[in-house]
Design a protein around this nucleic acid. Structure first.
Lengths: 189, 189
DNA sequence: ACCTGAACACCGTTCAAGT
DNA sequence: ACCTGAACACCGTTCAAGT
């Protein structure tokens, strides 16, 4: 009779995300993951190659979820400016909800822990699409990169505590989106 | 007779930066640092509280060096736009030279490993100063934050390999600076 | 076929003993 | 006064032995 399998790769992945989110990457020990799924550490190696592979799996799940969140944020609005605003807000909201897991996409880890580049690249595609309506196909990639870089940088500095002193951070984010929209359309004219 | 002291805090700090820069944070073991300064691991604890404290010391040195690099990049030019361009280039050049150490400023590490917030805040001061000439004192902080967020985000995505496909990355950075300058001055008018 | 205790190499940290 | 070997607790990973 084939054995039932006391845990699953998905359960392990979910436990790993939760542990990273609540305690940071240092809290992700094979023992902690094993305990969370009700098994002993050696059994995890039936489902994941090693700790680095587990980190990469979490990072790739983050890339997928973030891509979905951003795509949803742009779906409905016919006005490309409004769509860009919504996508930037969706980006920021996702990072606020999963700061430690989001950090995996930009941590300087071992190559084995880095998510597949093509998967990460897909996150920005809907932004390129809507930017095209604003600046034309020749400049859309550059304009989208400028906006995404700013949005990533803003949220990453915000979470690092760089904006602790002074001001309404939400308003600063909205200010930034308008400045970026104004800038990329003016400079490309 | 007082003992001479076979190593110094500065030698330990320098060794730690080199190790992080060449092998990432995982390569920073107390044994590796000890070997680099010609001593055994337990002796390091005469100079640093623990591994977290050593990481924080490296991060704080990075903040100081980066602040100096950016301040120097703006010193001479009377044109605020040219100064902002130079500071952004200085920021990017510093990060390219020390990518792994720069990453410490934004890694989600234990609180004991995070650099002093006031020290990090000082990095952006010269940018606020020169922005004030462009957008006035009321909007200078917001405008500087927008530029710094974009610059940080751009370089951090660049190093994460997000710009691997397509295009002249140097030109994209210059494009971004112009878009930001245009954007923050237009929106604040 | 899956699970696990035991084992191994490694790491951070402490401390009594050396000089 | 500084340095270190030995020790401890912990971690990732392997594997032979269990069921």
């Amino acid at each position: 009779m084939p054995a039932p399998g006391r845990t699953t790769s998905q359960a392990i992945l979910d436990a790993a995300s939760r542990i990273i989110e609540s305690g940071g990457l240092e809290a992700l020990t094979m023992g902690a993951v094993a305990r969370a799924v009700g098994v002993r550490a050696p059994s995890l190696y039936k489902h994941v190659a090693d700790r680095s592979g587990l980190i990469r799996a979490v990072a790739e799940q983050v890339a997928s979820e973030l891509a979905a969140a951003i795509a949803t944020g742009s779906a409905s609005d016919p006005d490309p400016r409004a769509a860009v605003r919504a996508m930037a807000q969706a980006h920021r909201a996702y990072v606020h909800a999963h700061p430690n897991c989001y950090g995996l996409l930009f941590a300087h880890l071992l190559p084995e822990s880095m998510p597949d580049a093509a998967l990460v690249a897909r996150v920005g595609l809907p932004i390129v699409d809507r930017m095209e309506e604003l600046v034309g196909p020749g400049r859309a990639l550059e304009a989208a990169r400028t906006l995404v870089a700013w949005s990533h940088g803003f949220v990453s500095m915000e979470l690092a505590g760089a904006f602790r002193l002074g001001g309404d951070v939400d308003a600063a984010f909205r200010f930034g989106v308008e400045a970026l929209l104004e800038g990329v359309t003016r400079v490309t004219e």
